[in-house]
């Protein structure tokens, strides 16, 4: 069970190279890097408004290149909401989400009250392998929301996170805090950046 009620934890899952980090970085920092660096695991924090107060939106960017069942289970059990990312250029990356969804289902029991967003990233790419309707069909089957995004062109990125927060019916959350731009409040904490501590 999540122990800190003040944190709202979103976990981003997906196969290697589908753009999980790019989506999160685009959302948190508003930038897009064209470099090619796999993620170990990064956590970002951002202040949002929640039930007329503020709370911290904590986004965990997981690794896609090696699954450690124990770590994955821990991320799922601590998470409040989940973003499942695939790349529209890879049918396989959508396949990879199936065991992850099953894992969420197994740990959370009932997924209907849990905000889950299926995301087809890289919508700017022309070499499409997964049609929009295929993604929608999968989302229907999983009874979760669906969106296509592009971190590169900043298409649907903020909408993705706002929509995810809207899906949570137990809290009333918004990315905007009393008209201030949320971007200024954002504070990114990269795990890799904390190497001096370890």
């Amino acid at each position: 069970m999540p122990e800190q009620s003040n944190d709202y934890r979103v976990v981003v899952f997906g196969a290697g190279g589908v753009g999980k980090s790019s989506l999160v970085l685009r959302f948190v920092k508003g930038t897009f890097r064209d470099t090619y660096i796999p993620t170990v695991e990064d956590t970002y924090r951002q202040v949002i408004s929640c039930d007329k107060s503020v709370c911290t939106l904590q986004i965990t960017d997981t690794t896609g290149s090696h699954q450690f069942p124990a770590m994955q289970r821990l991320s799922i059990s601590k998470g409040h909401a989940f973003i499942l990312v695939y790349s529209i250029t890879s049918k396989q990356s959508l396949e990879e989400l199936k065991p992850i969804y099953q894992q969420v289902l197994a740990i959370k029991g009932n997924v209907e009250a849990i905000p889950i967003m299926l995301v087809g990233n890289k919508s700017d790419e022309t070499q499409r392998e997964v049609e929009t309707k295929d993604g929608e069909a999968q989302a229907n089957q999983w009874k979760c929301a669906f969106m296509e995004t592009s971190a590169k062109t900043n298409h649907n990125v903020t909408e993705l996170f706002q929509e995810l927060l809207n899906l949570d019916k137990k809290r009333n959350m918004s990315l905007n805090i009393d008209g201030k731009r949320s971007g200024k409040q954002s504070r990114a904490e990269r795990l890799k950046g904390k190497c001096s501590v370890m």
Partner: peptide, 18 residues
Amino acid sequence: TEGSLAEMAAATSVHVVA
């Protein structure tokens, strides 16, 4: 003991890269 603590596992991952 991997899996007992996420922090530990994550830390291991970071160290392993180094």
